[in-house]
Amino acid sequence: MTLDQQVKTFKWVSILEGVSFLVLLLIAMPLKYIWEAPQMVEVVGMLHGILFVLYVLGAFWMAKALEWNLKTLFVVCISSVLPLGPFYVEKKYL
Rank of each mutant, 00 (worst) to 15 (best):
T9D: 07
K64G: 09
E17L: 03
I78E: 06
V81H: 06
S79K: 09
E36A: 14
I78N: 07
W12H: 12
Y88F: 15
A65N: 13
L94Q: 07
I78H: 05
G85D: 06
L47G: 06
V19W: 04
P30V: 03
L51K: 02
W12G: 15
L70M: 11
P86A: 04
L24P: 00
P83H: 07
L84E: 06
K64Y: 11
L73I: 12
M46Y: 12
F60L: 12
P38Y: 00
W12S: 13
E36D: 14
L57P: 03
E90R: 09
M29W: 00
V19C: 03
N69R: 04
F21K: 00
K11M: 06
E67Y: 07
E36Q: 11
E90D: 15
V41S: 00
M62L: 10
F10K: 02
N69C: 07
T2K: 14
L3D: 04
T2F: 13
S20M: 02
V89E: 03
L57D: 05
P83K: 05
N69V: 09
V76D: 02
W12C: 14
K32M: 00
V7L: 07
F52K: 01
M1Q: 10
L51T: 03
W12I: 12
W35N: 11
I27D: 01
L16R: 04
L70R: 11
L51A: 03
T9M: 08
I50G: 11
V44F: 00
V81P: 07
L66Q: 13
V13I: 15
T72G: 04
M40D: 00
V89F: 08
L66N: 09
L82Q: 09
L73P: 10
G49A: 07
L70S: 14
L22M: 15
K32V: 01
L84D: 06
V81Y: 10
C77K: 06
S14Q: 02
L3P: 00
G85F: 04
L84T: 11
A37F: 12
L70V: 15
F74V: 13
E90Q: 15
E36W: 14
S80L: 08
K32S: 00
W12T: 14
Y93A: 09
P86E: 02
M46I: 13
T72H: 08
V13R: 01
V56C: 10
Y55F: 14
G85T: 06
K71D: 12
F60K: 07
V7P: 01
L73N: 09
L31E: 03
L22G: 06
